[in-house]
C-alpha cells in the first residue's frame, strides 16, 4: 500500500449520500467513513440498497444529494486505484471469451487507448489466476466454468488491476465451499498487504468471523463500526424489522409526485 493520502484521508467517505432510481429514493442520507486497511462488510436485508451503495461509490448510479470521496479525492481522479467485482449474474457467461481474455480486462485501464495487452499484461493476468487457483483453466471458455470458478475469474480480473481499494458485490453468493475458502483467503491476503476490501454480503453467520468492520444498511445506514460493536441484537432488529416501510412508502409517494396516505 502506498501511503499517498491513505493514512491522512479515509479510503472511502460517503457524505450525506442519497440515491434515487428515477425519482424514487432507495438510499437515504448515508454518512459512512471506511479506513484502510481491512475487510469491511456491507450487510442488510434483500432490497436494502447494499449493491446500490457500492455503485454510488463507483459512480455507476447518479447521486441525488451528497458526495463520495475516495482517498480524499473525487472518483474521477482515482479510478485506476479502485477495483470492482460486480455480481456474477450481471454478465452473460455464454459470451465468446475465455478465462484469460476476461482477466486481461483488468489490465486495460492502465494501458490506455490504442495499446493492446502484451507480455507484461499476460504475466500479471497469469499471476492473478495463480492466486485464485485457476491458472490451469486460462484457455477455457467462461461458460464451461462452475459458478465458484466464474466468481474467482471475476476476482482475478480485479487482482490483475492491482488496485488499492476493492469493492466486491456478493462475491460469495451461490459459490461452492472450496471457492468460498479460496476467495476469502485472497481477500485476507489483500488486507494483509494493506489494502481495503469492501464486500457486500448477506450471510450474517459468517460476517462476524470475516470482517474487521461492518455497516448495517436498510435504505438508510443503521450502524457502522467494528463488526462486534455493529452486530448487536438491537442493531440487527433495527435493520431487519426497522423503518423500511416508512422509507418505502415515502419513496413511492416521491416517485408519483404525490403524498403518502
Amino acid at each position: 500500500m502506498t501511503d499517498s493520502g491513505a493514512s491522512a484521508c479515509p479510503a472511502v467517505e460517503f457524505h450525506d449520500v442519497t440515491v434515487a432510481y428515477g425519482r424514487r429514493p432507495v438510499l437515504w442520507n448515508i454518512d459512512l467513513v471506511i479506513k484502510a486497511p481491512g475487510l469491511f462488510g456491507i450487510l442488510g436485508p434483500n432490497g436494502a440498497g447494499k449493491s446500490t451503495l457500492l455503485k454510488a461509490a463507483l459512480g455507476l448510479v447518479p447521486l441525488v444529494g451528497g458526495r463520495v470521496t475516495l482517498f480524499g479525492r473525487p472518483l474521477a481522479e482515482v479510478r485506476s486505484r479502485i477495483g470492482y467485482v460486480p455480481q456474477r449474474e450481471t454478465v452473460d457467461w455464454d459470451f465468446p471469451v475465455n478465462v484469460m481474455d476476461v482477466v486481461l480486462m483488468g489490465t486495460y485501464a492502465r494501458l490506455g487507448w490504442w495499446r493492446r495487452p502484451g507480455a507484461a499484461e499476460r504475466d500479471r493476468a497469469r499471476a492473478a489466476l495463480e492466486r485464485v487457483g485457476l491458472v490451469d483453466l486460462a484457455g477455457r471458455q467462461i461458460g464451461r466454468l462452475s459458478g465458484g470458478q466464474q466468481q474467482r475469474v471475476f476476482l482475478a480480473r480485479a487482482l490483475a488491476q492491482d488496485a488499492e481499494l476493492y469493492f466486491l458485490d456478493e462475491p460469495l453468493a451461490g459459490v461452492d465451499v472450496r471457492s468460498q475458502e479460496r476467495i476469502f483467503r485472497v481477500l485476507d491476503d489483500l488486507r494483509r498487504e494493506g489494502r481495503l476490501v469492501v464486500v457486500v454480503h448477506h450471510d450474517l453467520r459468517t460476517a462476524a468471523d470475516w470482517f474487521d468492520g461492518a455497516a448495517l444498511v436498510d435504505m438508510r445506514l443503521v450502524a457502522a463500526g467494528p463488526t462486534a460493536a455493529v452486530l448487536t441484537p438491537e442493531n440487527l432488529r433495527r435493520t431487519y424489522a426497522g423503518h423500511i416501510d416508512v422509507l418505502d412508502e415515502l419513496g413511492r409517494a416521491v416517485e408519483r409526485g404525490g403524498r403518502t396516505a
Partner: peptide, 20 residues
C-alpha cells in the same frame, strides 16, 4: 484500434465504466 474497449464494454459494461 478500440477492440479492447469494445470487448470490455460488451462483456461487462458496469465494470468497464468503473475502471474509467
Amino acid at each position: 484500434a478500440t477492440w479492447k474497449e469494445q470487448l470490455f464494454t460488451a462483456f461487462d459494461i458496469d465494470a468497464a465504466r468503473a475502471v474509467g
